Simulated assay, not measured.
Amino acid sequence: MKKILSLLVLISGFLFASEQFVTYEVDGKKYEGYISSPSQNAPLVFLVHDWDGLTDYEVKRAKMLNEMGYATFAVDLYGKGVRPEKIEDKKRLTSELYKDRAKMRTLLDGGFNEAKKLGLNVSNAVGIGYCFGGAAILEMARSGAKLKKFIPFHGGLQTPKGQDYSRTKGEIVVFHGTADKAVSMQDFANLAVELEKTGIKHEMLTYSGAPHAFTVFGSKRYHEEADKASWKRFSEILEDTF
C-alpha cells in the first residue's frame, strides 16, 4: 500500500510540474486550454487570451509565471483548433461573445471548473486577461467569481448596459496605455468612477506612449518600457496577494 501511495504522489507531482495542453468540454463542445504549474499547491493565475485565441503568447506568459512559482490555467473561449488569423474572423469571434455575455460567462466558468478538476489551487487565485481577454476577466469580476483579483492588461473597460460591479468579490487592477486608441482614457476614467462608487477596491495604472496591445512581444505595438513596468508591478501584486 505504501508503495502505491508513493507512486501516486510521484505521478501527482509529475502532473503538477508539467506544462501541457488539455482538452475539455463546455456544453458538449471541445475546448483546449493550457496548464503550467510548478507544484501542486502553487497559487493560480487564471489567464484569458486576446482575440487571437490561445496562442504561443499566452503559453510564454504562463511559462514566465511558472518560473516565478505560480501555476497558470489559460482558458480557451473559442474552441479547440479555433485560432483565427484574419482580422474579420477575430472580429466575428469576439463580437459573438460580446453580444452573448451569458455564453462568455459559461465558457469562463467552464474553464475555471476544468482548472479545479485538474487539482489546481482555485481557492487561491487571481484572474488576468489581455485585450479581449481583459474585457472577459472584468465580465468574470461582475459575475461574482471568487477570485482575489481581476487584472486586465490593455483590456476593454466599458461596463455593458444592465451590468455593474455589485457582485464583485475581489479587487480590480487595470494596466492601460494612454496612447490606446481602441480603449479610450474616458473608458478608463468611467471605470474608476464606477468602482469607487460601488466600493470596489482598485488600482489603475497608465503608461505614457503605450498603445493598445502594448505587452505583445514582437508586434508593432509592443512598448518595452510599459510592458516591463506593468509586469514588474504585476509581480509585486502577486507577491502581496499570495
Rank of each mutant, 00 (worst) to 15 (best):
Glu96Leu: 07
Leu54Phe: 07
Leu15Met: 09
Leu191Glu: 07
Gly110Pro: 12
Ser95Asp: 14
Glu67Thr: 03
Leu157Arg: 02
Gly144Trp: 13
Pro84Ser: 09
Thr178Val: 07
Ala136Lys: 01
Pro160Gly: 01
Met204Ala: 08
Arg142Gly: 05
Asp100Ser: 07
Val174Ala: 02
Leu15Asp: 03
Lys63Thr: 12
Asn124Ala: 11
Val59Gly: 02
Gly134Met: 10
Lys146Ala: 10
Lys228Trp: 14
Phe132Ile: 04
Thr94Met: 05
Gly162Gln: 06
Asn41Thr: 11
Asp89Ile: 13
Ala192Cys: 02
Arg61Trp: 08
Gln158Phe: 05
Gly119Leu: 08
Ser184Cys: 11
Lys228Thr: 15
Met64Cys: 11
Thr178Tyr: 15
Gly177Thr: 04
Leu157Tyr: 01
Met64Thr: 15
Ala141Ser: 01
Phe16Asn: 03
Lys181His: 04
Thr215Cys: 13
Phe153Trp: 10
Val75Tyr: 02
Phe217Cys: 05
Arg101Ser: 06
Thr159Lys: 06
Ala213Gly: 14
Glu236Val: 13
Glu67Val: 02
Phe188Lys: 00
Phe21Leu: 06
Ser143Arg: 01
Arg61His: 06
Ile151Trp: 01
Glu203Ala: 13
Lys86Phe: 11
Ala213Met: 14
Arg101Asn: 03
Gly110Phe: 14
Met204Gly: 01
Val193Arg: 07
Ser37Met: 05
Cys131Gly: 03
Ala229Cys: 05
Gln186Ala: 15
Gly162Tyr: 06
Ile137Met: 08
Trp231Cys: 07
Arg167Met: 02
Val26Tyr: 06
Gln158His: 04
Ile137Asp: 00
Asn66Gly: 10
Ala74Trp: 03
Lys63Gln: 10
Met104Tyr: 09
Phe242Ile: 14
Tyr34Arg: 04
Tyr31Thr: 15
Ala62Trp: 09
Pro152His: 09
Asp50Pro: 09
Ala213Trp: 03
Tyr207Ile: 08
Gly81Cys: 08
Trp231Asp: 10
Asn41Phe: 12
Phe21Lys: 13
Leu7Tyr: 10
Tyr98Ser: 10
Ala182Leu: 05
Ala71Trp: 04
Arg105Gln: 06
Lys86Arg: 13
Asp89Tyr: 09
Leu191Arg: 01
Thr72Ile: 14
Thr215Tyr: 08
Glu58Trp: 03
Phe188Gly: 10
Ile11Val: 05
Leu107Arg: 05
Arg167Cys: 00
Gly69Ile: 00
Ala135Cys: 03
Ala213Ile: 09
Tyr70Ala: 00
Leu191Thr: 03
Ser219Tyr: 13
Ala42Ile: 07
Arg92Ala: 12
Ala136Thr: 06
Gly33His: 09
Ser95Cys: 13
Leu97Trp: 05
Ala42Phe: 06
His212Cys: 07
Met140Gln: 15
Lys117Asn: 12
Thr106Lys: 15
Val174Gln: 02
Leu108Tyr: 13
Leu8Asn: 08
Ile128Tyr: 00
Tyr70Leu: 01
Ala17Asp: 04
Tyr70Asn: 00
Leu97Gln: 07
Ser166Lys: 02
Phe16Leu: 02
Glu88Asn: 05
Gly119Lys: 04
Ile137Gln: 01
Lys228Gln: 15
Phe14Tyr: 10
Leu47Ile: 04
Leu157Trp: 03
Phe132Ser: 08
Val216Cys: 05
Ile4Glu: 13
Gly119Glu: 11
Ala71Ile: 02
Ser37Gln: 12
Val45Met: 08
Ile237Trp: 14
Phe73Val: 05
Ser184Phe: 05
Ala141Trp: 00
His223Ile: 12
Lys148His: 07
His223Asp: 15
His176Thr: 00
